[in-house]
Design a binder for these strands. Sequence first.
DNA 1: CCCTACGTCTGT
DNA 2: ACAGACGTAGGG
Length: 395
Amino acid sequence: MLQCPWWGFGVCLLKGTSSPEEKGIPQRKTKNMVSGLAPMLDYTTEMDRYRSSIASFYKTNVNMNMNVTNFPQSAKLAARLAAAAPIFPPTAARLGAMATTPWGCHDNMNMNMNHPAAMFWGRPKPSSSSGSGGGGGGGSSDGGGAEKHGHTASLPVSQGTAHHHAMASSNGNFLPGYSGGTDCGVMNKQGHTHADMIGLSEGGSCNGGGVMGGSFLGGLGLPPGVIVMAMGSAGGGISDASSAFQMTGGQRALTDCQQHANSSPCPSSSSPPSSGVTAAAVSLKRKRCGVCGPCRRLINCGVCSSCRNRKTGHQICKFRKCEELKKKPGGGGGVLEVSSCTHTHAYTRAHAQHWLDVSKCMSHLLFLLCVCASLSVCVCASRCACVSRCVSWLT
DNA sequence: CCCTACGTCTGT
DNA sequence: ACAGACGTAGGG
């Protein structure tokens, strides 16, 4: 389990350091914190770019590539994000740099990068004091919260936000090229770099540490050997490198993971101890496990029968249907103690293939999203190198 | 009260 | 087996 002793700049700056002060490093959540980086990082600018990019990304890509009505939640999400007040701290604050070896789960992000570093985007561990920025809230209790959040004017600046950002960024779906002239990024029609395309295409095209090489962070270089990792929302917990599809679910997953942080960090998709309702409980409605791939998916596909018949069907999107709930209640469950690679492998493979198949029928944009979704399934379900294999299946 | 979604029933 | 419809639990 990753434990960062100290967060500064949204970064786990040092290991074994007793306090930020000792290191003489400013620890702030907002502008002040980047004072030393001010020339490179401008919060407002970054936010503007971010929001406009999201808006245009969806507006353009979604309209261009698919019928937006098929992806109502994508649109909603875009709208929310675009309208949201700044939801994450300055760029620098989102970095979690670690001079330590990633633990298994996060090593997933190495994927095909052929590099021991993994980069995520996240938030610094919220300080115990304050709740600046209305940081309460946390995630919704249900995947459905993804939609319900639409009621609020802005995204919560806590877990939810962290996940939105962490995931979006880790997969690059929403990341509008923070680099000026990226060498390895793939530009979309808006001229924005999409890291997922980078990450999923070739392993070695981006050298340097992490997914985005040295060009992210507005040119902020990182010391050699510094590993940048996603801290999810609860730095040190199981980080959630899931995709833009799976924000709300991710929050919940994260919570669950934390609760099980001792032994089995994150319940696998096949045997989630966090299911809450046992088979014996019967009669009561079972709840989503919150940790499986579908549960962690945020956005309805908009095309499945459940989505199409939302009004009358009262069913969750097929792609968001909890793996556990798909099983017969009380039916021989719990047999698999699935922490093994083998199982995870099969699981992710199925999903990866599924999404790959889906992608063949859909747009390039969706393909990317789907790929990301698959990856996140891997990340969620595995604790090992399976992800890289999953990636290889997809590419 | 509204919305989401689980469980169940029914039809194909 | 699957899809669709419906009742209704649960949360906000």
